[in-house]
Amino acid sequence: MHTEDRWITTPLTAGLLRGALDVERTAHGLLPHRLPARARAQCADPQLAMAESQPSGVRLAFRTRATAVELDTLPTKRQYTGAPTRPDGVYELLVDGVLTGSGSVGGGNVLTIDMATGRTGRRDGRAGTLRFDGLPGRLKDVEIWLPHNETTELVALRTDAPVGPAEDRGRAVWLHHGSSISHGSDATGPTGTWPALAASLGGVELINLGLGGSALLDPFTARAIRDTPADLISLKLGINVVNADLMRRRAFGPAVHGFLDTIREGHPTVPLLVISPLLCPMHEDTPGPSAPDLGGLSEGRLRFAAMGDPAEKAAGKLTLGVVREELAAVVEQRSADDPHLAYLDGRELYGEADFAELPLPDQLHPDAAAHRRIGRRFAGLVFAQGAFAGRGTAREGG
């Protein structure tokens, strides 16, 4: 407990958050969610619950003259059985849009996951404190980006000067949905995920619905996107459906149509970009499911492998090649009646030459350098000259 007279405690409310679709009041404070309660109630999958509660793209935003900021949080950290301890999640401080500092909060709860059996356990812990000092004393916009890969309950916010609402910069809101790669996978910090970098370069406000292992064309996710105000929407689809061996070719195309139909109910004219998977050699011609090779886990090495058989494509099993064919066909069919719909082959963001230079360390996820490349590529291909160029300066009416 802090008793210094200079500290001002500001109540934590949804109004201080950007990038979250919902907040939950817990016994400790405020828990941001990236899916609304109605969606969460329709699926008991623990992977989805973990992914959507990890606040990728979620940030506290406020305006203040404070030179010092303290944030108490209760993190929930992951620990994989037999693996070295994972590093603490990273918080990043932006002052007037410029990355100024970073830090972590130790302790907290620990979620233990046995990848061999799927069993989980939980050990409760205590909240910790993140502190940033030496901020300029002028009136400024401050953002604290929460760890993209660590569930974070917000407990208390203290500053040495009053806090007010962040300035409305009038930027377009970009809502992006995708898999663990969009979630942030092996990025080093929350502003280093490829969507966060692309949003910064594109001058837009990000809502990141990248859900690790959970971009599965779920109807409740489509409804969440439908009901969320946005000026620009992109959907990176396919890799998780292959990873999970979730559906066959017969089901995939109609499921994509249904997903797009639902989104268009709420956003009939918003620019909507469908992105096929990035290059992932192990699944280009080999169906799923994906499975971890746990042999090197004790040394901190984890690799994934495709467990399907290329011959199974004849029976309708999905590969990334098949997924790209289906996505391109769906978009081509719909484009005749939907001039605001576009398609991008994900290999333009990360393809064979990129894999040769920046290979996927675990055969599935890009590293931090590849995230930076993908983010820059997306900004150039989509915001500068592509589907979102010159678009989204004013929110869709109605």
Rank of each mutant, 00 (worst) to 15 (best):
L157C: 10
R158Y: 11
D160K: 02
P162E: 00
P162W: 07
V163Q: 03
G164Y: 14
P165H: 08
P165D: 10
D168Q: 09
D168C: 03
D168K: 05
R169L: 15
G170M: 07
G170Y: 07
G170K: 06
L175R: 05
H177R: 02
H177G: 01
H177N: 12
G178C: 09
S179C: 14
S179T: 14
S180M: 07
S180Y: 11
I181E: 11
I181H: 08
I181F: 12
I181Y: 11
H183R: 01
G184K: 04
A187Q: 11
T188P: 03
T188S: 11
G189P: 14
P190S: 01
G192S: 12
G192R: 13
G192P: 03
W194A: 02
P195T: 04
A196R: 02
A196N: 09
A198F: 09
A198R: 08
L201N: 01
G202C: 12
G202K: 01
G202V: 13
G203P: 12
G203V: 12
G203W: 09
V204F: 12
E205Q: 14
E205S: 15
E205P: 10
L206H: 10
I207L: 15
N208H: 12
G212Q: 01
G212L: 02
G212V: 04
G213A: 04
G213F: 12
S214T: 05
A215Y: 07
A215N: 15
L216D: 02
L216Q: 13
L217Q: 06
L217P: 01
D218T: 04
D218Q: 09
T221K: 09
A224C: 09
A224W: 04
A224G: 09
R226H: 11
R226K: 14
D227R: 10
T228D: 03
T228N: 06
P229K: 00
A230R: 05
L232C: 06
I233M: 08
S234N: 08
S234Y: 11
L235I: 10
L235W: 09
K236H: 13
K236P: 10
L237K: 14
G238F: 00
G238R: 13
G238E: 05
G238D: 05
G238C: 03
I239K: 10
I239M: 11
N240C: 07
V241Y: 00
V241E: 12
V242D: 06
V242Q: 04
V242M: 07
N243D: 06
N243F: 15
N243L: 13
N243V: 15
A244D: 10
L246F: 07
R248I: 14
R248L: 15
R248Q: 12
R249I: 12
R250D: 14
F252T: 04
G253Y: 02
G253H: 03
H257I: 15
H257L: 15
H257Y: 09
G258T: 05
F259E: 00
F259L: 06
L260I: 15
T262K: 00
I263L: 05
R264Q: 08
P268Y: 04
P268A: 02
T269C: 01
P271W: 01
P271S: 00
L272A: 06
L272K: 11
L273W: 11
V274R: 10
V274K: 10
S276A: 12
L278D: 04
L278N: 09
L278I: 15
C280R: 06
C280M: 11
C280S: 05
C280L: 11
M282Y: 07
E284H: 00
E284Q: 14
P287M: 01
P287E: 01
G288M: 05
P289K: 01
